[in-house]
Design a protein around this nucleic acid. Structure first.
Lengths: 259, 259
DNA sequence: AGTCGTTGGTTCATTATTTGAACCGTTGGT
DNA sequence: ACCAACGGTTCAAATAATGAACCAACGACT
């Protein structure tokens, strides 16, 4: 593994649950030598990717990542375009809408919108990592991904997030067939209990999936009429976002609603 | 220079004017060997920091930077907090408001808001790099920065952005004294012609400046009344943002409006 | 007060990685 | 048919990364 990869890998230990990490913790988490971590973090700090804070000198992500993100947005304005789409989506459905994007082999939530209509909502965090087999968004992406990608995603032992999570690769592949025929993926309580999610894939310029839009609602509020609304809105939103970010749907994507 | 620093330095060649860079261009820009750039970019790509696009395989920033930025925002929500403050600021003044943050030795614009009140506006780009000596924001930060920092910022030959730009370090230091006494920095046509800017510093938990809020208006619209409005609003906005992000004003900051 | 375990930080000989000149095969313009 | 520029690749030589051991400082516990 190259030195740069090691350094960048250190950044991946920052999550929503761990905003600050001390040198020793980082050493343990990464398995690298302490002196190595120290030097790598020093270089990352020099570049503004992390900063040291407080009397315990713990590291947290630095302002340089904001600059890069602003530039990425200027080049590929997915987040800014999606904001309006997410707002409309959650407004039309009355439920929580969110966007997730592929980052290499991982699916990351990067934007969300809450509806004020109901007191209970499905809550979201940005930068959370979703499982492919357990979420509607994950299935929506997998259904139109390369075979190799699907194989990789279903290779390791699949985590059972809830008692209803399907962890059998064969069963999941069968579900993907259905998603392909339908155009929309659905998941009831397989990632978080009591959450009913729908998701539609978003495509890039090469007609391959780059992420998914999803609507997440409490199971108790899902009615046939609500389900129809969500599916229709989701279809429109995914088409909209794909087009406005320069993407194209693959020809095999079902144009009209199936069963 | 360490390998990691070299790799991260490659990312700094992406700007608002250069969203995509080919291998050869990047080699020329960085002065590194082509094979080195190729390998480093390969590692950056592997980590999702850049992606290759199009038939010419040009590099552009990748989705990983969005994930990191979302995490940084979760840890230190300056951008989300500032959004409302910027909106209010530009609403109250009728002019363009923007936020810039220190990134090591550079000052970077990271958020802005336009007022619909006038047809002509001062336009902004996010992730643009501001000069310390030429902008109101830069002066506001310098006025409360370490002596060493000021020395470094005024060391090199200072660019003359317009015919009115002050490039004499002595004259700039005199201006800093005035800014310190006043609490607000002002710049008329020294970065962009015909732009009259006011800026107030924003402070971090250690009472040192972390950036600045600014209001930029066409010179032609600046009246004494407007100037008073901007200065009062800016003062309130900077205090608000500093407090809400866990920062503190240094005791020597002028609490009440001076001349 | 003394001990222990932990923290962030530093050193330097050994080691493994990075480097760069020269080399492909393609592409596009003349 | 040529030339120049592109992205990508190779491999011996040079350089940078590594890790065990070592500080000093802090806090908890006896």
């Amino acid at each position: 593994m190259g030195t740069v990869t090691k350094a960048l890998n250190l950044l991946s230990f920052f999550t929503q649950n761990r905003h600050e990490i001390g040198l020793s913790d980082l050493t343990r988490l990464s398995g690298l030598n302490k002196a190595t971590v120290y030097r790598l973090m020093g270089e990352l700090q020099e570049a503004g990717f992390v900063e040291q804070v407080g009397p315990d000198r713990a590291y947290r992500l630095g302002p340089e990542v904001l600059r890069l993100a602003a530039l990425r947005e200027a080049a590929v304005p997915i987040l800014s375009v999606s904001r309006g789409i997410l707002d409309r989506l959650c407004d039309a459905t009355g439920e929580t809408a969110h966007l997730s994007l592929l980052r290499g082999t991982q699916l990351v939530t990067l934007g969300h919108a809450y509806s004020p209509r109901h007191a209970t909502r499905v809550m979201m965090d940005d930068a959370e990592i979703l499982s492919f087999h357990g979420t509607a968004s994950g299935l929506a992406v997998l259904a139109w991904a390369d075979d190799a990608f699907v194989d990789a995603a279903l290779a390791g032992p699949l985590a059972a997030h809830t008692t209803d999570t399907v962890t059998d690769p064969g069963a999941i592949r069968a579900m993907l067939d259905q998603v392909r025929a339908d155009g929309i993926a659905e998941s009831v309580g397989r990632f978080e209990a009591d959450v009913h999610s729908h998701a539609a894939p978003v495509f890039g310029a090469d007609q391959r999936p780059i992420g998914a839009l999803a609507v997440a609602a409490p199971v108790s509020r899902m009615t046939p009429a609500q389900r129809a609304t969500i599916r229709a809105e989701l279809r429109a939103a995914a088409r909209d976002l794909t087009q406005r970010t320069g993407g194209f749907f693959p020809p095999e994507y079902p144009q009209e609603a199936a069963a």
